[in-house]
């Protein structure tokens, strides 16, 4: 039964790949990454369709964070190709990758705690001071940032730091947003705002690749899904199909029935 399911999933993956390949903004082919003497990624392959939101799922230690960091050039792929908008970026430096229009929100958030909220955002707006309209849009979703505008970011709560980390990535229009576990430690009310913000972004200017452990959040937001297992992508397809297949979720993510809601 499992073999048939996997084969069906692989078949849907092939069809999905054919469908999105023409409009893939980001493509990874045979990406292998070592950290020290540890082989973390063993040939990662998937596409991120332009204008959509792709969820990168997987168990702890599957290689999701390493994949995002490799795309961003923070860890080097020692083999394979990473194409962004038709250009191989696997050998570019991190600042050059960022300047192509890719923003990154790490799992640790990496906000600058000694800088104020304002200074964090001013720094993230590389080309010009943050636009008033853009700031108002961000404040409407993450009100706390306006309230603590002049406060050192180190004094913010965990949830507020997460808001700032996301706001920093979207303070200017970016073509691709790489976001690592945006809901980690967030209150449900803030998650709702985060979902609204991500939906508006993907409907507008950006393509999103989001690593997420919260499957309830992932299924609400994702258009497509890539599931990693042991340093490889074990499944790709539409989120709708994946969300409907509880057995596949159990097999790839180890989710119990209670976590599917």
């Amino acid at each position: 039964m499992w073999t048939a399911r996997i084969l069906r999933a692989q078949d849907s993956r092939v069809r999905w790949k054919r469908a999105v390949h023409v409009s893939a903004l980001l493509s990874l082919r045979g990406v292998k990454t070592n950290i020290g003497r540890y082989h973390i990624l063993h040939g990662v392959e998937f596409d991120v369709a332009e204008g959509g939101l792709t969820m990168l799922l997987g168990r702890n230690g599957a290689g999701k964070t390493t994949t995002l960091r490799t795309i961003m050039g923070l860890w080097r792929a020692h083999e394979g190709e990473i194409h962004f908008a038709g250009r191989d970026i696997a050998r570019l430096s991190t600042p050059d990758i960022a300047r192509l229009g890719i923003a990154y929100v790490p799992e640790s958030m990496a906000i600058f705690g000694d800088l104020t909220v304002q200074e964090n955002l001013v720094l993230a707006a590389r080309s010009a001071p943050p636009e008033r309209k853009r700031l108002d849009w961000i404040f409407a979703r993450f009100e706390a940032l306006k309230r603590f505008w002049n406060l050192p970011a180190g004094n913010l709560s965990g949830g507020q730091k997460q808001m700032l980390a996301v706001a920093r990535a979207i303070i200017e229009p970016r073509r691709l947003l790489l976001i690592d576990e945006p809901t980690k430690g967030l209150a449900p009310a803030i998650i709702v705002n985060m979902i609204a913000a991500f939906r508006e972004l993907k409907d507008g200017e950006s393509t999103l690749l989001v690593v997420e452990q919260n499957f309830a959040f992932a299924r609400q937001l994702g258009d497509t899904v890539a599931v990693m297992d042991d340093g490889r992508v074990a499944h790709t397809g539409t989120m709708a199909a994946f969300a409907a297949d509880a057995g596949l979720q159990q097999h790839l993510l180890g989710l119990g029935m209670g976590e599917h809601q």
């Binding site: 923070l74 991190t94 790490p106 990496a110 800088l115 200074e119 993230a124």
Partner: peptide
């Protein structure tokens, strides 16, 4: 100066924002 202060705290993130540290 802002870049230097941010870089002292987390150089990697400054690079991810597009600045050559």
């Amino acid at each position: 100066g802002l870049l230097i202060r941010a870089g002292v705290e987390n150089g990697e993130m400054v690079e991810a924002l597009g600045y050559r540290i």
